[in-house]
Design a protein around this nucleic acid. Structure first.
Lengths: 335, 335
DNA sequence: CTGTTAGCGCCTTCAC
DNA sequence: GTGAAGGCGCTAACAG
């Protein structure tokens, strides 16, 4: 593997001149530039970005730390992040925490050691420790999707979970539903908590007692289990509210296995849409979140900070959600 | 950001001793080790992996270059690769080519500059140039999913596309189908070519003329267009064979829009299954490929090479496919 | 417009 | 068991 010195010798110039050609910095005579480029071609030279970054203190790498890349919601967020990165000459390292605080810490350490220029984090559990560790290294940070507790000390880009859940619950009310079972992700994760809050606020506004609430995991298995539990209640809920797309999948499977029809016997609503490439005929009524936009916008905020273009005080950007009405919900007669 | 020197000063030792503690190399007195670790804690020191790698000529990073990470097939492959990496202390950089040779070259260069220890490549287009570039840098390489043309000069781990397509075509024959339209990905990509070959071989074995063959893209849109074209034929094909999961999705959408029922009016089969988390009730009859295993095994082969444990001559590992029979296929009466 | 010098933070090599 | 010297490949800072 040739180095910059080999190229310099081959072209009859000093190494720094090669460096300037590679980086398009300072003026280099047209003829010199040609000689250098020819030498680069001849030797098949590729700059060593390790050495380059060590010297320049810039890696042009950002890290995206999220819960679960097998979830299409996160795949879409990742796409948004990567596109914004590409547009600005950055690469993205992607790591999965699987909602484990230990994994999160391990991965965070690993990417910090790699000297990433910035970090996008969808935090698992209590984010204070994580944020502190990142701060201590002086690495710019944007929190994605989830709301850190306490006063705002960091940029946040997320969706309006509370408002979305509120609106969806009201929509179910408008169809005549009143016994709605809420099945959410882990308690303590802000997206879970906010969706539950929105659900409860809608009931409060109506002056009713909220339906049963369960906390679980953002997985198909957990959704399956929670739905089965919810269906045991007497009288049976007339609608099930799934806290994310995987919980909705588990819920639909549980209903199928229980021999119940959707929406004739039970209405089902969820959070997060599925990409149109993955479904032939969209069926589920959902609170849709702008996943791609969140990723893209989040990274724009981060890159603005890196470039010193960002405002002094941290921003919190809350993107609106939207109800997409499909065939998994039906009106019921008032009792 | 503290360096190894700061830690050394804090602990009252030489930098090299800190290095030995971090790397668990050579013997370090228990008491010294404790002092050093305490200093590391106090300063919140994280080793700079750039400097480390520059010196040690090892990054512990592998690159996975594939066509399209939004496809669940590739997501699953990536999971297999990442798990095998984790198990062996490696990280994975993941890059998308979107089936573009230009993007492939650009990305390949970028990851080579990052000094990755090894490469897993699902090549797009003619892989010779790519393989040469990688070889020139002396970076170990495993080809994934696709069969490079010509004699075997590199490790390959892939699935038996030809055999899978052959078996599926025979299965359709056994249901009485004879007018089967094949809709595949790009001509020149070995998985496309092999699936077409298997399809043709089945017809040859039966002594019949193969049904119409179309080459397109591995996308929903392309599947939609190819299916519409296939349906124009007179007489209409009784079965449609989709070359991958996205083409199958497009096909099903086209049939829905054309008002045709599956399988009553037309049978549909595909290649690649969808993860069970993404479908409530699996419907499509498919040739299922062991995507996770391919990724995992592929990376094991690569890591074995890195460790010098691999055999001298390149290996070609061909994993078997499997027909999963579901509700998108029906028997038709012989004419 | 081009070159010299020095050092990024760490680890290899050799010494004791 | 510990340390000193030197260099991995590149570019910042300063000439000229």
């Amino acid at each position: 593997m040739p180095t910059i010195h080999d190229v310099a010798r081959e072209a009859g110039v000093a190494p720094i001149t090669v460096s300037r050609v590679i980086n398009n910095k300072n003026y280099v005579a047209e003829e010199t530039r040609k000689r250098v480029n020819a030498a680069i071609q001849r030797l098949g030279y590729l700059p060593n970005s390790l050495a380059r970054s060590l010297r320049s203190h810039k890696t042009h790498i950002l890290a995206l730390v999220l819960a679960d890349i097998t979830n299409p919601f996160w795949t879409t967020v990742a796409r948004g992040v990567e596109d914004a990165a590409s547009e600005n000459g950055f690469n993205v390292i992607l790591v999965n925490t699987d909602e484990s605080e230990i994994e999160q810490k391990r991965h965070l350490q690993a990417v910090l050691e790699k000297q990433v220029d910035g970090l996008l984090l969808a935090p698992t559990g209590d984010p204070f420790q994580a944020i502190d560790m990142i701060r201590a290294q002086g690495v710019p940070l944007v929190i994605l999707d989830r709301r850190p507790p306490g006063p705002l000390a960091v940029d946040v880009v997320r969706c309006d979970s509370e408002g979305g859940a509120y609106a969806m619950t009201q929509y179910l009310f408008s169809l005549g539903h009143r016994a709605i079972a809420m099945m959410c992700g882990p308690c303590g994760v802000s997206t879970s908590d906010d969706r539950v809050s929105g659900f409860q606020r809608a009931y409060q506004a109506a002056g009713w007692t909220p339906g049963p609430i369960q906390y679980g995991e953002f997985t198909v298995e957990s959704g399956y289990a929670m739905a089965n539990k919810a269906l045991e209640a007497t009288p049976r809920p007339t609608a099930l509210f799934a806290g994310n797309n995987f919980i909705a999948m588990g819920t639909l499977k549980a209903l199928r296995d229980a021999g119940l029809r959707v929406p004739e016997d039970v209405s089902v609503v969820g959070f997060d849409d599925l990409p149109q490439a993955l479904v032939v005929e969209p069926f589920l009524t959902v609170v849709s979140q702008p996943a791609y936009l969140m990723g893209h916008k989040g990274n724009e905020v981060l890159i603005a900070r890196l470039s010193g273009l960002a405002p002094e005080t941290p921003e919190e950007i809350i993107l609106p959600t939207q109800i997409i009405q499909r065939r998994s919900t039906a009106a019921i007669l008032p009792q």
